[in-house]
Design a protein around this nucleic acid. Structure first.
Lengths: 228, 228
DNA sequence: CGTAATATTAGCCACCTTTCTGATATTTAA
DNA sequence: TTAAATATCAGAAAGGTGGCTAATATTACG
C-alpha cells in the first residue's frame, strides 16, 4: 500500500439544485471561496438540474429536497441512474425524519440542514467526495434509530441471551422456513418428503416453542427476529 | 438567535476501549497531539472500560467492536445506559456490514476503520461531539442501502410511481394489520365490528392485490415491506 | 448399553380459510 | 348525474389448520 504524499489536489465540481435563488447564491459564494471546490452549474428545478448533471458530470450534487414538481428524492434516484459515482448531498431547512431516510436510501450520502456553517459544508463536501456518510446532528440519532434491530439481536445472541428461549431443532427450522414462504402443511410435507402428519407435528411444536397461536404469528415473529 | 463569537474551546474528553495495546497507544498519541482532545482513560476490555466511563463521564468513547468477552455492541448499549449523551465511535479493522448496522442501532454515532488518518479521526471526533453521524467510506453506501425502503416509497407515491402497484384501501390496511397480528377472520370481524363475511371479503382482496396465495405470505410480505 | 431427545407416521375432530357467486348501500370522481 | 370504487353482508363447497393421543425408528450422550 503506497502512502506517498504527492497528492495532487483536484478541484471538486459541484452542481446546486435549489429553488430559492437567495440560497443558491449564498451556497455558490460560500463554496467558491474554497480553492478546491467549484460550483459548475445551478438549477432551480430537478428536470433542468438533471440535464446539467448529464452535461457536467460533477463530483457532488447539492440537492434541495423541497423542490416543486419532481422532488429531491426522485431526482436523487435519477442522479444515481446517470452516474452512480456522483455523490448527492441532501439539503433542507427542516428535519422530517422520513424524508431523511428516503433521501439516504435513494442514494444520498449526506444530509445537511440549510443553516449549516459554510466552512463546515465545505468540509462535508470534501468528506463526501471520499465516500463518507455525514448526517446533521439534528437528525443523526433519529435516523440511526430507524435501523432494523434484528441485526443487533443477531450479533448479541451469539454470546449471551441464549437463556429463557427454547431453541428449535434443525428440522423445525427447515419447516419454519417453508412456513414463512407461505407453504401449507401438505406442501411442506412434499418438500421434505415426509407425511403430512409429520409436517403438522413439526408445525405444532414450532408454534409451542415460539409461544404463538398460529402459523401467521410464527411467520411474522420469525421474520421480525431474523430467524430466517 | 445569537451568533456571538465568544466560543470557549472546551477540551473533548475521550476514553479508548481497545484490546490491542499497540493500537491503543497509537490512538492516544495521535489524539493527544490535538490541543482540544484529551484521552482521559483507556481499557483493553469492555467491563473495565464501562467502569472508567462511569468514573470519567467522557464526551467520546472510541469502542473497538472486536473485543473478547463482552463485545463492542453490548458495551455500546451499556454506555448508552450510563449516559445517553456520551457519543460512541465504533472502530474495527474489517467491515462486516451487519456489525456496522448493529453498532449504529445500538447507539454508536460513527464507524471508522482502524486505518483512518489520525487527523481525520480528530475531525470525526469533533463532528461527533456535535452529534454528527459519520460513516467510513468503505461501509457508508452499504449501510445506507440497508435502510428500509418503504419510506422512500412513501415519499414518492405522493407524486408519482402510482403505476404498476395496486394499493390497498384504508379498510384493507386495517384488516392487514390485524392479519399480521395473527388474528383469524372471526377475530378481525369482531375487532372491526363487521360480519365474518366482510372480514373474509377484505382478506380475499388483500391476497389478490398483494399477489399472494395465503395470509401467511401476505403477513410476511407486509412485514418485509414495512406496510404495517 | 440404556435413556433421552428427535423424527417419523397415524387417525380424529372441531374449526378456520379460501374461493365462488351474488346482492346492496355509500362514497368518490368524472 | 352517472359511473366506478368501496364496504358491507350471505351461503356453500373444498380443503387446510391446530390440538389431541399414540406408536415406532433413529440418534446422541453419558
Amino acid at each position: 500500500m503506497v502512502t506517498a504524499v504527492e497528492i495532487e489536489k483536484k478541484t471538486i465540481s459541484v452542481i446546486i439544485i435549489e429553488d430559492f435563488k437567495l440560497t443558491r447564491v449564498g451556497l455558490r459564494c460560500a463554496l467558491n471561496s474554497n480553492p478546491d471546490i467549484e460550483v459548475v452549474a445551478e438549477s432551480d428545478n430537478a428536470v433542468d438540474g438533471l440535464e446539467l448533471i448529464k452535461r457536467y458530470n460533477p463530483n457532488i450534487v447539492l440537492m434541495d429536497l423541497g423542490l416543486a414538481g419532481m422532488n429531491g428524492i426522485e431526482a436523487t434516484l435519477k442522479v444515481k441512474e446517470i452516474n452512480k459515482d456522483i455523490k448527492v448531498i441532501a439539503l433542507t431547512s427542516h428535519d422530517r425524519e422520513e424524508e431523511v431516510i428516503a433521501a439516504l436510501s435513494s442514494g444520498a450520502m449526506a444530509y445537511c440542514l440549510k443553516d449549516i456553517d459554510p466552512s463546515k459544508l465545505a468540509d462535508v463536501i470534501r468528506d463526501v467526495v471520499e465516500g463518507v456518510c455525514w448526517l446533521d446532528p439534528l437528525v443523526a440519532r433519529k435516523v440511526l434509530d430507524a435501523f432494523p434491530k434484528q441485526e443487533t439481536i443477531g450479533i448479541l445472541k451469539d454470546k449471551s441471551s441464549e437463556e429463557g428461549r427454547v431453541p428449535l431443532t434443525e428440522r423445525e427450522y427447515e419447516v419454519l422456513k417453508h412456513l414463512v414462504d407461505g407453504k401449507s402443511n401438505t406442501e411442506i410435507a412434499k418438500e421434505l418428503i415426509v407425511s403430512v402428519h409429520t409436517a403438522k407435528a413439526h408445525v405444532c411444536s414450532i408454534l409451542q416453542k415460539m409461544c404463538v397461536n398460529d402459523r401467521v404469528q410464527a411467520a411474522v415473529k420469525a421474520v421480525k427476529e431474523g430467524l430466517v
